Simulated assay, not measured.
Amino acid sequence: MHTIWKGTISFGLVNIPIKLHSATENKDIKLKNLHKECHSPVKYEKVCPVCEKDIAQEDMVKGYEYTKNKFVVLEQEDLEALKEENEEKAVDIIEFVKLEEIDPIYFDRSYYLSPNDGGTKAYALLRNALEETGKIGLAKITIRSKQHLAVVRIYHHTLIMETIYFPDEVRDFKEVPNVPEEPSIVEKELETAKLLIDQLTATFEPEKYHDDYRTALLALIEEKKQGEAVTTAKEPARKDNVTDLMQALEKSLSKSKTKKKKSTAKKSKTTKKSTSQKAKAN
C-alpha cells in the first residue's frame, strides 16, 4: 500500500511514528474529450487572453480575487514560508470525544495509519486505549499545505484517520430552500411509511452493493473494443522552422498592410481637410 505521508501521532508526551495510506480510491472511468472529426485528444492550454500567447508554468504566479477582476498577488516565497510555518509532520490529538457526537456531514476522507519504525508498541497502546474507553481522538493535521481537523479511531483492528470539515466549511441547513416546517400528516400515511421502512430494514453488508453504471459502461467499452469500434489518434504535424518563419512573415506582412492602410487613410483625411480649409480662405 502506497505511503502518502510520514510523521507522528502525538498526544500528551506520547509520540508514535506512523505512515499514512489512502483508505479509499476513486474508480470513476475517465473518458477523454476527442475531436469529433479526427478523434485526436483535445488539449487544454494555458493562454493569456491579453498577450495572446501560451504561458509556461514558470511564468505564472498565484493570485486571490478579492473582488471582480481585482487580485492580490502572492509570491511563491510567501506561500513556501507559510507552508514551512504550519506543516508540522504530526497528527496532533488535542481532545478525545465520542464518535456519535460528530455528525456524518463533517466527514471528508479516510486514511489508514500504520506504525513506522519503532512505533509498533505505542501504536498498539493507543489502539487498545481507544477500544477500552470507547473514545476517538480529535486532531489537527496539515496535508499538502491545507490544515484539517481529523479523528483517529479503530477500524477492524487498525487505526484509521478521517479528515473532517471545519464548522465554517459546512453550509448552514437553514439556507436550504423550501423545507416544510410541520405540515399536517395523516396518521394512516405515517403508519404505512413506517411499515415500508420495517419491511426494507436490513443489516448493512457493503459487499452486496455495486456501481451498476460503471459495470455497464465497462461492458459497453469492451463490446465496442471487441467489435473493433476503436480509433487511433493521429500525431499532430510538427512545425519546422521554415513553417514558423513563413507564419511569422505572413503575420508581419498582414500587420504592415493594415498599418499602411490606416496611414494612407489618415493622410488622405488630412489632405482633404487642408484642401477644404484653403478653399474657404479663398
Score class of each variant (00 low, 15 high):
176 V>R: 08
162 E>L: 08
78 D>P: 02
184 S>E: 14
133 T>D: 09
119 G>E: 02
34 L>P: 08
154 I>N: 15
167 P>V: 00
30 K>V: 14
78 D>N: 04
45 E>I: 05
160 I>N: 08
154 I>P: 03
77 E>F: 06
193 A>K: 03
281 A>K: 14
21 H>E: 07
195 L>Y: 11
120 T>V: 12
82 L>Y: 09
94 I>V: 12
38 C>T: 05
218 L>M: 06
49 P>G: 00
18 I>F: 02
60 M>P: 00
133 T>C: 09
212 D>R: 14
175 E>A: 10
35 H>Y: 07
185 I>P: 03
182 E>W: 10
43 K>G: 01
221 I>F: 03
207 E>Y: 14
277 Q>G: 02
137 G>R: 09
248 A>T: 09
140 K>V: 12
155 Y>F: 10
99 L>F: 08
220 L>K: 15
117 D>E: 15
170 V>T: 05
27 K>D: 12
180 P>R: 04
224 K>G: 13
64 Y>Q: 01
171 R>S: 02
78 D>G: 01
150 A>G: 07
170 V>K: 01
273 K>P: 01
150 A>T: 05
103 D>V: 00
202 A>P: 01
232 T>N: 13
277 Q>W: 03
223 E>D: 08
267 K>E: 15
239 K>D: 11
49 P>C: 00
280 K>I: 04
254 S>Y: 08
106 Y>V: 00
29 I>Y: 04
23 A>R: 01
2 H>S: 03
61 V>Q: 01
269 K>I: 04
161 M>I: 07
95 E>C: 07
210 H>S: 13
136 I>S: 05
70 K>Y: 01
183 P>K: 02
241 N>Y: 09
167 P>Q: 02
242 V>F: 12
196 L>I: 15
280 K>Y: 03
120 T>I: 10
146 K>R: 11
